[in-house]
Design a protein around this nucleic acid. Sequence first.
DNA 1: AGCAAAGCCTACTAAATTAGTATAGATAAT
DNA 2: ATTATCTATACTAATTTAGTAGGCTTTGCT
Lengths: 143, 143
Amino acid sequence: MKLSARSRYGARLLLDVARHGQNRPVHLTEVARREELPLKFLEQIAIPLRQAGVLKSVRGPKGGYLLARPPTEISLAEVVRLLEGEELIDCLADASLCHRVGTCPTRRVWQEAGQAFYDKLQSITLADLLTPGQGLWEDTGDV
Amino acid sequence: MKLSARSRYGARLLLDVARHGQNRPVHLTEVARREELPLKFLEQIAIPLRQAGVLKSVRGPKGGYLLARPPTEISLAEVVRLLEGEELIDCLADASLCHRVGTCPTRRVWQEAGQAFYDKLQSITLADLLTPGQGLWEDTGDV
DNA sequence: AGCAAAGCCTACTAAATTAGTATAGATAAT
DNA sequence: ATTATCTATACTAATTTAGTAGGCTTTGCT
């Protein structure tokens, strides 16, 4: 149970685009350099984010990526869900995997824990990460 | 990001021991049969649970496992932490993996989300799973 | 028109993790 | 003693994740 590099890199990609894409498209070569992440991997990560309407792209020279929406309207939950593959728990993703579906009391537990995870991410937007120090979410958990 | 079979099986193992280990040790052969799980895998899972004082064992014939504490005092968080390997996020587990540690605003997000996940599991005990339908935690989330 | 800089897409490979098996040993009831 | 059970380590196979490669498409610039 590890958060994948796709999600981690995806968040950093979006953050980088948010920071540098105010007035112009940001190309991935830049992001790869600044964030020290592999370009080809970033290209793969950008695609579902664009398809889902989180990023928008400009093709051709001087092209690149921009946020498709204001950073206040992009939650981390959306990003992780797109990149992580929806379901955290196998026996929830595919009921046929386990014929105990109807009675197994543990399924419910996993479902709730996964929900709690995503609920927390839902409450954090890109904008919160752009202005650290005065964040809305800074006071919610003592870790 | 998937919950591992170890955690899922571990929870079922404990539940089975809780149900059948009232008056006698439960041996893993039984559990394997009832829960349709591989015996050898269960043996591996039982070890850290015993070492952590969640299960206790009786060796020799008529031996088996018992809960080391009442089911009200065994939270799912403890079980998952023992079986899953502590940290959900690589760059939190080992700071040397990323030299941006000091400044990267995303680390904090992952930390909080992981915390939310474990907080939810912390609130659910084995006892809650033993008495479904009137559960303390049944009303907390609408999924 | 044509070159070059970008994104787009698919397929492949390598590394790591997870799931499960095998084998050998320790302990204790009978 | 024998046998049923837990204990421990090492191994293997399957799956997933991370990353690479190559070629295609679009479009600004000259």
